[in-house]
Design a protein around this nucleic acid. Structure first.
Lengths: 135, 135
DNA sequence: GCAACGGATGTAATAACATAACGTTTTGGA
DNA sequence: TCCAAAACGTTATGTTATTACATCCGTTGC
């Protein structure tokens, strides 16, 4: 499921969507990806959503639930995507991806203590990055 | 902003929406709240969304971003809503609200170390509660 | 080669979630 | 009482996501 991007054979649509996300400065919504890919022949949301679904499955991108958008993973081959945290700057919209094993462990055991077994986590922080806080 | 429910004077619409959420077993979407309140005179989504917005502001309810739904807060007067975590059972849809200061601190300092100042966090775990895992 | 199958695709329609814009009513001080 | 702020009602619209159905295309087994 998780693998280096080069090792996977992506389809045409998957490649186009992935490339779009990788070259973006900020997270993109499905519809803004669609708009960017009109010239490549995309006509319908489903073309985007289907590609997004696969890319998430491959561990190449993440969905940011709190802003209904998607970003390329910064460490697509690191394997530990299940508890990644994302800091989303409300000023510049850029995202910092944080992978911290200690936090993941803490959160997982917290869940366990509450009688819960986690299969997937959403950790998203909203606020300001340093660059934007200064200005 | 955060206060015991009784200390706040909620408007009619806010009261109706809050009561609906408090008596629900699981998180509700805005539109399902709307449906439940048709008999009370609700006609439009905005009536619900406006009430929800205020109730969140008052710290009486939480929004669950990963499922576009809302739940009544289990500890409305505890004050520390900014870093609550939610475990959402994918089988029974029930939610466990977890308020853990250590985790909040850990996550906040993690963000700080990454040059980020957090104003609001979304922490949502998907998986199975004990009751559902057994069956 | 070619039938059969599964995965990927194309397209249209629609469902689900959320807000803009406008005017009116209510409420709570000065 | 008067004013301003907040809440409300209504319509329309914007945004995000999925259902349903037909087609295409590469792989596998014969």
């Amino acid at each position: 499921m998780t693998a280096p991007a080069e090792a996977l054979k992506l389809t045409k649509n998957q490649t186009l969507v992935y490339r779009t996300l990788k070259s973006a400065e900020e997270p993109l919504s499905a519809y803004s990806i669609l708009d960017q890919l009109r010239d490549e022949g995309f006509r319908a949301p489903l073309q985007v959503y289907r590609a997004l679904e696969k890319l998430i499955e491959f561990g190449l991108i993440h969905r940011l639930e709190s802003i209904n958008s998607f970003v390329a993973c910064r460490h697509p081959d690191c394997g530990t995507h299940e508890m990644a945290a994302f800091a989303i700057c409300e000023s510049c919209n850029r995202v910092i991806e944080i992978n911290d094993a200690a936090m993941a462990g803490h959160l997982a055991s917290l869940a366990r203590n509450n009688g819960f077994s986690v299969s997937h986590s959403t950790i998203e922080l909203r606020g300001l990055c340093d660059a934007c806080r200064v200005h």
